[in-house]
Design a protein around this nucleic acid. Sequence first.
DNA 1: ATTAGTGTACCGTCCGGACGGTACTGTCAA
DNA 2: TTGACAGTACCGTCCGGACGGTACACTAAT
Lengths: 204, 204
Amino acid sequence: MHEITSEKRTASRGKGERKNARQRILDAALAVAHDVGPAHLSLDAVAERAGISKGGLLYHFPTKQALLQAIVESHLAAIETAAGISAEAPPQDGNAIAIGLLRSYCTASPRKAGGAQGFLAAIAETPSLLDPIRAHNVRIVDCLRKAPEADLALISFLVVEGMRSLELFDSNPLSRGECESILMRLKDRLEANGLERAAGTIPS
Amino acid sequence: MHEITSEKRTASRGKGERKNARQRILDAALAVAHDVGPAHLSLDAVAERAGISKGGLLYHFPTKQALLQAIVESHLAAIETAAGISAEAPPQDGNAIAIGLLRSYCTASPRKAGGAQGFLAAIAETPSLLDPIRAHNVRIVDCLRKAPEADLALISFLVVEGMRSLELFDSNPLSRGECESILMRLKDRLEANGLERAAGTIPS
DNA sequence: ATTAGTGTACCGTCCGGACGGTACTGTCAA
DNA sequence: TTGACAGTACCGTCCGGACGGTACACTAAT
């Protein structure tokens, strides 16, 4: 371990890019979770993976809870920004949000490998970490319900959620092309709705 | 604990209803997972909850792996039978399967509380337990792809998957009524497709 | 009918090991 | 000097699971 550490030190010149130590630790945690399984995520392993000592790790995240919480928060933040939802924006148009969701799935999908496992680790250890996500979902569907053609908007939401879930468990049998095609189709219909609001020409 | 045991013994007369000991343990495991969180599912807790000793538990499930595997298998079996998919049936009609999926979600939904948490516990500890589920998904979408209006069938699959995922994390903001309405709408369109196969009258 | 034997279902204890977390002492660049 | 770590040593807890024992039912030979 000593040798590895010294390599790291000499290679990365003190703390030049050390500002993102937090992020490095987070990434390491995701990687470890992916490698050993969410239930076996240990601080020791994370520290080693991040190239720091356990003491250093605990300097940034004083407890495991803190680390897990940070994982969930970054996870959620990634989703929200990708969908173009500012944290506490004024209640937006349902149609726009649905479209944002559909686009976000493709956009944000070059997922850092194993991010899902880290998320699972957090949830498994502290189910209450789901609270922000629950709130997030409530916020979104509240908007979606108010959209013209609420059903279609909700279906879009559920489809994205389904894809995300499949990817979370690394068991998505659909190709990227198939996913995009489905997403596009839904998006097109939502956009059509957005344009011809008052016209009753849209088939249900 | 001794006293409890004697009660149980006298109350249940030897091994009369003891046949379902396995099932009782499984249920206990789900309940414990729900109470303490997936990551803290311990054999001790399961044994206590099931009203047997740890030794007795290990008699039925020689290892924790075995218990977790049983949880996943029963989970999957419940889904498959609810959707009307016999384990290794001849490749069925895509439309029929999609409709089965849509119906199954409502049918099988009086979920034994916390079944989800048990599932998560299993996945978190041993990600490879996902393999049968992966296979299951592949089988299903293979059928779905061959359906007329494959897109619609796949969307139905994804919607169900989305709902399941939301419920898995106990964060479904949709009411039961809303879910059923969405499911119904999709089902109706699938059934319409089934009837008018060759007619091009169905709007995309 | 008694005895002995076999199998099942379970009890209770024990142990090695891992893990989270604490505490404290360097170190070293800014 | 101080912030940002490194490194080490350790404690208490908890967990999986191996093990040996027990209580009972059933069968089969005597």
